[in-house]
Amino acid sequence: MPSSAVPARRVTAAMVAERAGTSIATVSLVVNGKDRGRVSAPIAARVRDAVDELGYVVDHAASSLARGTGDLVVLIAPDLSNPFFAEVIRGVRDTLGDRYQLVLSVTERGAQPATSDLRRFERLRPAGILVDAPAAGGSLDAAVPVVLLDAPDAPTGAVAVDYDLTSGVAELVAHLRERGHERVAYLDGTARVATFGVRHRLFQEACAAAGITVSELGARADLTVDAAAAATEHALEAWHEDGVTAVVAAADTLAYGVLRVAAATGLRVPEDLAVAGFDDLPSSSVTAPALTSVALPGAELGRAAALRLLAAVDGTAAEPVALPTRLVRRASTGG
């Protein structure tokens, strides 16, 4: 039986302006949060009341088409559930303030962001796009400003904000040397992301310079505690037979898996096996034992990237940024 429901009438800015007794331009300023200092408080209140009464919703896509650009900034990341990305998001949001609305996107199945992800959001005409931990080797250009985060192999000409890992890795290796470790293992991530490759390479180079042997019996895991624990269970006996006394993981999340297996098998940390990671996530200070980690400040990364994006949107110059890193010594290495 045909439905007798009558389609709801689309509420327009003109209807809101008529209800509030003001102009469409004033409605636009108020609903887009740009009324401060430009629209009196009583008129702004009347517009907001009219918006609520009529159920008006701003059509950002249409607005973007009219202006040629939008008031949205898109952040594309492989995994927003990771606490590290929560810090990045906070830094971006605090820096953008009320000027732009931040839209978050997770790539399909946690894959590293690629050119196809940028193309999907270009159709929205955003003001700009932030890409966190992009896939290695891809061309990440777009018709709007793009800033890459944590992308040490960014293509020539790309705008990127990265970490200077050299100091943090040097501190980590010096700390392991001081604690008497001569043979260590490395638990790497499986993600196709350049930053993991840089962490591994710098760690191996620093160990070689310090006279520490990195076991050839390395392991890899997806960036989850469960996957890291499974990889550790598979490799633990071989590491022990190879004389490994410390395990360094490419990310704190992986190190948590090592700590879980150590606790389950009765290994004392750090007496029997020292453990360290990268990121210095908030949880790393409350693990059992607390985790030694190379601190990669996520909020600072987000802030620096947002500032570079704003500079690109405004057409102003911005200096390249390489954020410093440092080692946070905790009980997992006897720190």
Rank of each mutant, 00 (worst) to 15 (best):
H175P: 05
A62S: 11
L291C: 02
S283I: 09
A235Q: 14
R46Y: 05
R330M: 00
L75H: 09
V198M: 09
L118P: 06
A191G: 11
A312Q: 12
G55H: 03
L130T: 04
D188F: 07
A311H: 04
D150L: 02
P113D: 10
G138Y: 02
T195Y: 14
G243N: 07
L236D: 05
D35I: 00
G335H: 10
V16C: 06
V248R: 04
A290Q: 02
Q204G: 12
E237F: 01
S40E: 06
L323N: 09
R308H: 14
P270V: 00
D272P: 07
D164N: 14
T253P: 03
L267H: 14
R308N: 11
D132P: 00
N82I: 03
G21Q: 07
T12E: 01
D141E: 15
S105N: 11
A311I: 07
V11G: 01
H181Y: 12
D272W: 09
P2F: 05
L75A: 11
Q112F: 04
R303P: 00
L172C: 09
D132L: 13
I76P: 03
S293K: 03
V131K: 04
S23K: 06
T69V: 13
D94H: 07
D222E: 15
P324C: 12
P134R: 06
V294C: 13
V275M: 01
A295L: 15
A228W: 02
R19Q: 13
D49M: 08
F121I: 05
T166A: 15
L176E: 07
G110W: 10
Y186K: 01
A255C: 08
L75E: 08
D280W: 07
R125C: 04
S215D: 12
A50V: 04
R109Q: 15
V294A: 12
A208F: 00
D252T: 08
P297S: 12
A127H: 04
A230Y: 00
E182G: 15
R67A: 13
D242K: 03
E271P: 03
L149W: 03
A44D: 03
V131L: 12
V258W: 00
R330H: 04
Y100V: 11
V193W: 03
V261I: 15
D280L: 13
V31N: 02
S28E: 04
G110D: 07
R177M: 00
S81I: 13
A170V: 02
A62I: 05
T224Q: 09
G335Q: 08
P126A: 11
R177W: 00
